[in-house]
Protein backbone atom coordinates (compact mmCIF):
# COMPACT_ATOMS: atom_id res chain seq x y z
CA UNK A 1 0.00 0.00 0.00
CA UNK A 2 1.51 3.37 -1.02
CA UNK A 3 1.60 6.55 1.05
CA UNK A 4 -1.24 8.96 0.20
CA UNK A 5 1.30 11.64 -0.81
CA UNK A 6 1.90 9.76 -4.09
CA UNK A 7 -1.69 10.44 -5.11
CA UNK A 8 -1.70 14.16 -4.33
CA UNK A 9 -2.85 16.24 -7.28
CA UNK A 10 -0.31 19.05 -7.87
CA UNK A 11 -3.01 21.26 -9.38
CA UNK A 12 -5.24 21.07 -6.33
CA UNK A 13 -2.41 20.92 -3.83
CA UNK A 14 -1.63 24.67 -3.86
CA UNK A 15 -3.39 26.15 -0.78
CA UNK A 16 -5.04 28.99 -2.70
CA UNK A 17 -6.37 26.67 -5.39
CA UNK A 18 -7.59 24.20 -2.79
CA UNK A 19 -9.51 27.05 -1.10
CA UNK A 20 -10.98 28.15 -4.44
CA UNK A 21 -12.14 24.59 -5.11
CA UNK A 22 -13.55 24.34 -1.57
CA UNK A 23 -15.59 27.48 -2.22
CA UNK A 24 -16.80 26.32 -5.62
CA UNK A 25 -17.73 22.91 -4.22
CA UNK A 26 -20.37 24.66 -2.08
CA UNK A 27 -22.00 26.67 -4.87
CA UNK A 28 -23.48 26.19 -8.33
CA UNK A 29 -21.46 29.15 -9.50
CA UNK A 30 -19.81 32.21 -7.99
CA UNK A 31 -18.82 35.64 -9.21
CA UNK A 32 -15.09 36.40 -9.56
CA UNK A 33 -15.22 39.21 -6.96
CA UNK A 34 -16.99 37.00 -4.44
CA UNK A 35 -14.31 34.30 -4.82
CA UNK A 36 -11.52 36.87 -4.57
CA UNK A 37 -12.91 38.36 -1.36
CA UNK A 38 -13.76 35.06 0.30
CA UNK A 39 -10.43 33.39 -0.48
CA UNK A 40 -8.55 36.65 0.14
CA UNK A 41 -6.53 36.78 -3.07
CA UNK A 42 -5.57 39.59 -5.41
CA UNK A 43 -7.19 39.86 -8.85
CA UNK A 44 -4.05 38.73 -10.63
CA UNK A 45 -3.33 35.82 -8.28
CA UNK A 46 -6.89 34.53 -8.60
CA UNK A 47 -6.75 34.90 -12.39
CA UNK A 48 -3.55 32.85 -12.52
CA UNK A 49 -4.99 30.11 -10.32
CA UNK A 50 -8.18 30.05 -12.36
CA UNK A 51 -6.17 29.67 -15.56
CA UNK A 52 -4.40 26.61 -14.11
CA UNK A 53 -7.66 25.13 -12.86
CA UNK A 54 -9.42 25.80 -16.15
CA UNK A 55 -6.57 24.25 -18.11
CA UNK A 56 -6.85 21.14 -15.95
CA UNK A 57 -10.58 21.04 -16.70
CA UNK A 58 -11.53 21.60 -13.06
CA UNK A 59 -13.42 24.87 -13.45
CA UNK A 60 -15.29 26.78 -16.11
CA UNK A 61 -14.96 30.55 -16.43
CA UNK A 62 -17.77 32.37 -18.22
CA UNK A 63 -18.23 36.08 -18.82
CA UNK A 64 -21.64 37.68 -19.10
CA UNK A 65 -22.45 41.21 -20.20
CA UNK A 66 -25.24 43.20 -18.61
CA UNK A 67 -25.30 46.75 -19.96
CA UNK A 68 -21.79 48.07 -19.48
CA UNK A 69 -21.03 45.65 -16.68
CA UNK A 70 -19.12 42.44 -17.35
CA UNK A 71 -19.48 39.69 -14.78
CA UNK A 72 -17.19 36.69 -14.58
CA UNK A 73 -18.82 33.51 -13.32
CA UNK A 74 -16.81 30.57 -12.09
CA UNK A 75 -18.14 27.05 -11.60
CA UNK A 76 -16.70 23.69 -10.69
CA UNK A 77 -16.79 20.92 -13.31
CA UNK A 78 -17.54 17.29 -12.45
CA UNK A 79 -13.83 16.54 -12.77
CA UNK A 80 -13.03 19.44 -10.46
CA UNK A 81 -15.49 18.15 -7.88
CA UNK A 82 -13.99 14.66 -8.10
CA UNK A 83 -10.44 16.06 -7.76
CA UNK A 84 -11.46 18.15 -4.75
CA UNK A 85 -13.19 15.20 -3.04
CA UNK A 86 -10.15 12.99 -3.70
CA UNK A 87 -7.79 15.62 -2.32
CA UNK A 88 -9.87 16.09 0.84
CA UNK A 89 -9.78 12.32 1.40
CA UNK A 90 -6.00 12.28 0.96
CA UNK A 91 -5.48 15.23 3.31
CA UNK A 92 -7.65 13.50 5.88
CA UNK A 93 -5.52 10.42 5.48
CA UNK A 94 -2.29 12.41 5.88
CA UNK A 95 -3.67 14.28 8.87
CA UNK A 96 -4.78 11.07 10.49
CA UNK A 97 -2.05 8.56 9.63
CA UNK A 98 1.07 10.59 10.39
CA UNK A 99 4.12 8.60 11.47
CA UNK A 100 5.28 9.94 14.85
CA UNK A 101 8.79 11.42 14.93
CA UNK A 102 10.89 11.08 18.01
Amino acid sequence: MSHPRHDLDPIVHTPARFSVLALLAAVERAEFRFVRETVELSDSALSQHLTSLERAGYVTVRKTQSGRRTTTWIALTDEGRAAFTRHVALLNQIAGTAPRLR
Binding site: R5, L8, P10, I11, H13, T14, P15, F18, S19, A22, L23, A25, A26, T38, V39, Q48, H49, S52, V88, L91, N92, I94, A95, G96, A98
Partner: peptide
Protein backbone atom coordinates in the same frame (compact mmCIF):
# COMPACT_ATOMS: atom_id res chain seq x y z
CA UNK B 1 3.28 27.29 -10.87
CA UNK B 2 3.05 23.54 -10.32
CA UNK B 3 6.85 23.18 -10.08
CA UNK B 4 7.09 23.52 -6.33
CA UNK B 5 5.41 20.47 -4.92
CA UNK B 6 5.89 19.75 -1.25
CA UNK B 7 4.16 16.98 0.61
CA UNK B 8 2.08 18.44 3.43
CA UNK B 9 2.86 17.51 6.99
CA UNK B 10 -0.09 16.29 9.08
CA UNK B 11 -0.33 19.76 10.61
CA UNK B 12 -0.38 21.39 7.16
CA UNK B 13 -3.01 18.90 6.00
CA UNK B 14 -5.14 19.74 9.03
CA UNK B 15 -4.63 23.48 8.42
CA UNK B 16 -5.68 23.12 4.77
CA UNK B 17 -8.81 21.21 5.78
CA UNK B 18 -9.65 23.80 8.43
CA UNK B 19 -9.26 26.61 5.90
CA UNK B 20 -11.46 24.76 3.39
CA UNK B 21 -14.08 24.36 6.10
CA UNK B 22 -13.89 28.10 6.94
CA UNK B 23 -14.39 29.03 3.29
CA UNK B 24 -17.36 26.68 2.91
Amino acid sequence: MEGKFTVPTPDEARAALTEAQRVQ
